[in-house]
Write a protein that binds this DNA or RNA. Structure first.
Length: 453
RNA sequence: GUGGAUGUAGCUCAGUAGGUUAGAGCAUCAGAUUGUGGUUCUGAGGGUCGUGGGUUCGAGCCCCAUCUUCCACCCCA
């Protein structure tokens, strides 16, 4: 008989009960914080039309979208000519009309436009669902992973930005992760490009600068030259890099872009956001970083990125303001701002830091040992009474050896075991054993219930 | 998509220069202990050495391909 070796696709994972509990803890913490600020839940389907997703994430992003083959005879409409030409772009659009979502923001934009008439603006929503990327997996990078997004759309107020920072701060405080919240504004970057006289090379410059801390100035320098940036502009960029490390970076950059209208606007916005958060009792470190660019090309204003301080891991959170994401679906003047938390990376970080509460390993509170049919009759009422009080209670299903049953309790980290055999029935009591201390006592029905108050 | 490493029991790994029946620890199961787990002792089960080819009298070890996982780049959560 032949069988397939059980395995799952690259970059996907099973979550065992203990992992699930820890993940749930992260989701709950995040969700509670979202709710506090009046964000409402939303879920969208795993798949969207491929046309909804393509063109939103840049060329690199488009390549990473998982496509879904049409059902049925999906080649019947395709001509032999198209097949032999092997033009992937036109061919995939013919045989794949659906794709797995790549993030939660674009489906959200689609949702807002589609349900425009039913929504009240500003609309605040949160969404915690898996997304899929055909990336090559590595540390902190999966092909299926969960994002927790909040967005507010239909408001240009910078109070939203400040609130998102405060929410992030609250979440990471609760999860015991020390973070740096990096802040920048796309308008400042636009202003810089304008001042440099390199408007059309804007993306090239920001992308090159974004990896400065990783690869160093030498490599960034040669990349800028290679992209055809004028030498005098490259010199100014070098100056900019120096400024970025200065404690008075904001003032210096403000001076640098003072001749650019949009640049000044960016500085103004950034100052407002920082001013607002300063009154919100934010504990995490907030820092302005001109070099922060972020790839997703729909951002137009504030951009955020959050990284854990004490461990080596890519950013665990990122987001920004987008002025025209709904435009592509036919709805203009709908500015939004949002941030996305990567649950899986947060999990990895917490695991490395060892900051998960110990209590998450405990599922069942009480285990009744099983000594046979008559004894089970005797414990049924107590088990029911405990469950009624909300205590997770198990009755061992088989009349197995006591050693096996005790061992089951031990392995499952069940803190209490109730032993009720012939002796207990005769005296109308229950023996309650505390598995942590190893002590046990005989108690009446009511006395047991009182212990679990 | 580019470059580099990796793959031996459920897990972590040994495996000497290619040579008979591939090992250990942990985990699992059973017993020591017929109403007491976590410690200890004894024993047992479990591997077509990632997969497919090739070289060789002979391959876990050498060669090729392929897949997996990991790391860096690209990009990102």
């Amino acid at each position: 008989m032949s069988y397939v070796k059980p395995s799952i696709p690259k970059g996907t994972r099973d979550f065992v009960p203990e992992e699930f509990a820890r993940r749930k803890y992260i989701f709950n913490t995040i969700e509670n914080e979202f709710k506090k600020y009046g964000y409402k839940p939303l879920e969208t389907p795993s798949m969207e039309f491929l046309s909804t997703l393509t063109g939103k994430y840049g060329d690199e992003g488009d390549k990473l979208i998982f496509k879904i083959l049409n059902s049925g005879d999906y080649l019947s409409e395709v001509s032999d000519e198209e097949l032999t030409n092997k033009d992937l772009k036109s061919l995939t659009s013919r045989i794949c009309e659906k794709a797995l979502r790549y993030d939660l923001t674009v489906p959200f934009a689609r949702f807002v436009v589609q349900h425009y008439n039913e929504l009240t603006f500003p609309f605040k929503r949160y969404q915690m669902q898996p997304v899929w990327r055909a990336d090559r997996p590595q540390k902190g990078r999966y092909r299926e992973f969960y994002q927790c997004d909040i967005d507010v759309i239909g408001s240009t107020s910078l109070l939203n930005e400040a609130e998102l920072i405060k929410i992030s701060d609250g979440i990471f405080q609760k999860l015991h992760i020390n973070v740096t919240i990096k802040l920048n504004n796309r308008k400042i970057l636009n202003g810089i490009a304008e001042v440099l006289g390199e408007n059309e090379k804007f993306t090239d410059i920001t992308v090159a600068l974004d990896k400065l801390d990783k690869v160093g100035w030498e490599i960034v320098h040669s990349e800028l030259i290679a992209k055809g940036i004028k030498p005098c502009a490259v010199e100014k960029i070098a100056l900019l890099v120096k400024m970025s490390e200065s404690p008075t970076a904001l003032t210096e950059i403000a001076e640098f872009v003072k001749d650019s209208e949009i640049g000044r606007q960016g500085i103004e916005e950034l100052r407002t956001v920082i001013e607002l958060t300063s009154k919100m009792n934010v504990k995490s470190q907030i820092c302005f970083d001109v070099l922060l660019a972020r790839g997703l090309n729909y951002y137009t204003g504030t951009i955020f990125e959050i990284a854990a301080k004490d461990v080596q891991m890519g950013s665990i959170s990122g987001g920004g303001r987008y002025d025209d994401l709904t435009g592509i679906f036919g709805l203009d003047n709908m500015s939004g701002v949002g941030i996305s938390y990567g649950a899986d990376r947060i999990y990895d970080v917490m695991q490395m830091l060892g900051v998960f509460p110990e209590s998450l390993n405990c599922f069942t509170q009480v285990l009744f040992l099983n000594f046979g049919d008559r004894e089970v009759q005797y414990i049924l009422f107590l088990a029911e009474a405990l469950r009624k009080k909300g205590i997770s209670t198990e009755i061992f299903p088989d009349n197995a050896k006591m050693k096996k049953q005790m061992s089951y309790a031990d392995k499952n980290k069940i803190p209490f075991v109730i032993i009720a055999g012939e002796n207990e029935i005769q005296n109308n009591v229950f023996t309650l054993k505390n598995m942590t201390t190893g002590t046990q006592q005989e108690l009446s029905f009511e006395a047991v219930l009182n212990i679990f108050n």
